[in-house]
Design a binder for these strands. Structure first.
Length: 154
DNA sequence: GCCAACGTTGGC
DNA sequence: GCCAACGTTGGC
């Protein structure tokens, strides 16, 4: 049962600074439209789990901060909203497809670039480093979490 | 902007 | 239920 996660966000959509500026430094993690990632949120995440907040699809992809899961998996509100880009016509409030959790910032860190992570033996098994990985939410092993913390310093 | 890898869709 | 076509992701 993993207690740590890596969660990708495009900084153009929601950056670490957006999270820092959000009320209670908390954002609802909406818009996940991949079943594997959804299942992680729905079935395995617990309030209190640690999160590596990762910037993807940008000039410098990498870990930008530490966060925590602060709310349980609930139906993703954007799936019901025709005005949302995440609207899912096949989802209904009676039969929701997608879930969201709350993510609260613990602290912004230095950017730990993906490039640098690739060179760290203790991180070699991380899902996010696997070739072809596209999952936006991946489990992080306790040893990997510790190694990332060590790299980030204080 | 390229493109490889992957997930989803839909015809059969 | 197969699988080709298509769309998306995301590093480079």
């Amino acid at each position: 049962m993993p207690r740590y996660w890596l969660m990708k966000s495009e900084p153009a959509e929601a950056s670490i600074d957006d999270l820092a500026a959000a009320p209670a430094r908390t954002l609802p993690w909406t818009g996940v439209r991949n079943y594997q990632a959804r299942n992680f949120m729905r079935d395995e995440m617990q309030v209190g789990d640690g999160v590596l907040f990762y910037h993807s699809s940008c000039a410098e992809p990498g870990v930008a901060g530490l966060a925590r899961i602060s709310g349980p998996a609930l139906p993703d509100t954007t799936q019901f909203d025709p005005a949302s880009g995440y609207f899912d016509p096949k989802a209904t409030p009676a039969k929701p497809r997608w879930v969201q959790v709350d993510v609260t910032l613990e602290r912004k860190t230095r950017l730990l670039p993906l490039r640098e992570m690739r060179g760290v033996p203790a991180l070699a098994g991380m899902r996010v480093l696997a070739p072809g990985n596209r999952l936006s939410i991946t489990p992080v092993a306790p040893g990997e979490w510790q190694a990332v913390l060590a790299l980030l310093g204080r």
